[in-house]
């Protein structure tokens, strides 16, 4: 996918809890795969399996009520830990198109932005309300309006924070970074020439 992302609309998927790290989203054994294809089948695998084994409430990713959901609602520091892009890739390929949370791991947010998956921040009380709303009305459409910085859910509105620069990149389509970077290739080359070379005698001889 490429192009501007102004807003995302879809049903909500409530995932309570804080500090959900990328190891939980995708376990390291799937990092041995050399393609992102099919990564979605392993999203939250252990936690889902444990919920199934325990016979308790299904994990939200297995709950039939949220089968069509594309807007994930999470707590604090979601996606902390390992820089594995496998985590956002798995969520995206699963069908998630926006994430609403109190806060996010820094590298995770950057990785999400790189693949056009917006992460927006809401206040703690709004996160709780959105979690409740998703559970009570699973078919309720939620719109994350990136440009306006607002989340619309039925009659309700919540303010969504997104750093200005990240917002600009989503709205302009420049989240898709490689072409942007290559546009300034000449300028980068000049800049690199100003920086010290790494001992050229050794380079390539190892």
């Amino acid at each position: 996918m490429t192009g501007p992302i102004l807003a995302v609309t879809g049903c909500g998927l409530p995932l309570p809890g804080n500090n959900i790290d990328t190891d939980q989203i995708i376990e390291s054994r799937y990092l041995k795969l050399t393609s992102f294809q099919g990564m979605e089948t392993h999203v939250f695998e252990s936690l889902r399996q444990m919920a199934r084994t325990a016979g308790a409430t299904p994990h939200p990713f297995d709950d039939p009520r949220y089968k069509e959901a594309s807007v994930l609602v999470v707590g604090r520091n979601f996606g902390c830990g390992s820089s594995r892009e496998h985590a956002p890739q798995a969520l995206y390929r699963y069908g998630i198109r926006a994430i609403i949370g109190q806060s996010f791991g820094e590298i995770f947010v950057g990785n999400c932005l790189s693949i056009g998956l917006p992460c927006v921040e809401v206040a703690a009380k709004d996160e709780a309300k959105l979690q409740d709303l998703c559970r009570e009305f699973p078919t309720q459409c939620i719109t994350v309006d990136i440009a306006k910085g607002v989340i619309f859910a039925g009659q309700r509105q919540f303010s969504a924070a997104l750093e200005e620069g990240r917002k600009q990149r989503l709205v302009s389509g420049s989240w898709d970074s490689l072409n942007v970077l290559l546009d300034a290739a000449e300028h980068t080359r000049t800049k690199l020439q100003e920086l010290p070379v790494i001992n050229p005698i050794k380079t390539g001889t190892t």
Binding site: E85, S114, S177, L178, V180, L181, K191, L192
Partner: peptide
């Protein structure tokens, strides 16, 4: 010095630069 994801690894391989805040 900081960690990046695979898309940014691609960016650095192709342009020896990346977008950072």
């Amino acid at each position: 010095a900081f960690g990046i994801g695979t898309s940014q690894v691609r960016d650095v391989l192709a342009s020896q630069s990346l977008i950072a805040e």
